[in-house]
């Protein structure tokens, strides 16, 4: 009888402990997070600012305004500055070596380097959307290689004479009538989502 009472007491304590444990788990504060769109928008704010600074304060100033040094695709051979698009890609590749939490590229419907043409449906739709809807971004979900991504596409505009002269004059350009302010391409940011 005494043993039965002890077992019942132990059982009740265990149940209580379990209940407390469960409720403690339920009541644990939810870890603060950031939704993929805000995350992508924030990344783009940094990327587009850095890109604009390099294009305007370095390339356009030194090449077009002060004529001190040229920017060249073969910047090492030509002892020149890397092109703004290369600068952007080098950063993207370095990021890819450090993290898989996001990735980004600079793509275009009129790419000089054909590897930068849209590949996926979302890329195509996104680039067409940002060209047709100035000032708006494009967001979509997509699945690539069995993984799901939140994909954002942002307009990349011609912000300096250097952008326009280089793209319009390049031997491999498919379009030669860009003007300052035109959307020349788009920044595609992907965030893997579970």
């Amino acid at each position: 009888m005494r043993a039965t009472r002890m077992m019942m007491t132990a059982g009740a304590m265990a149940a209580l402990a379990l209940t407390i444990g469960c409720s403690a788990k339920e009541e644990a504060p939810v870890k603060a997070g950031i939704d993929p769109q805000t995350f992508a928008d924030s990344l783009f704010a940094v990327m587009s600012s850095d890109r604009a600074v390099y294009t305007q304060k370095v390339v356009n100033r030194l090449q077009n305004d002060e004529k001190v040094i040229k920017a060249s695709e073969h910047f090492e051979d030509d002892k020149a500055l890397p092109l703004p698009a290369q600068m952007f890609r080098f950063g993207a590749e370095m990021v890819a070596e450090k993290t898989d939490k996001f990735s980004y590229q600079l793509l275009s419907l009129w790419p000089i380097n054909k590897q930068n043409a849209p590949e996926t449906d979302v890329e195509k739709k996104g680039l067409e959307y940002i060209v047709a809807n100035p000032g708006k971004n494009f967001y979509a979900d997509e699945e690539l290689g069995g993984k799901k991504y939140f994909t954002a596409v942002y307009a990349d505009k011609a912000i300096a004479p250097a952008c326009v002269t280089c793209h319009n004059g390049h031997k491999d350009t498919p379009r030669k009538d860009f003007k300052i302010g035109d959307t020349m391409g788009g920044v595609v940011i992907r965030v893997p989502v579970s």
């Binding site: 090492e76 993207a92 590749e93 370095m94 990735s103 890329e123 690539l144 290689g145 595609v188 992907r190």
Partner: peptide, 20 residues
């Protein structure tokens, strides 16, 4: 050698189809 096909060029998800 300024490798034209470094791994970092292909780690992007948009290359998933190519990598298969």
């Amino acid at each position: 050698s300024k490798d034209n096909h470094p791994a970092k060029k292909f780690s992007d998800p948009r290359n998933a189809d190519r990598l298969t």
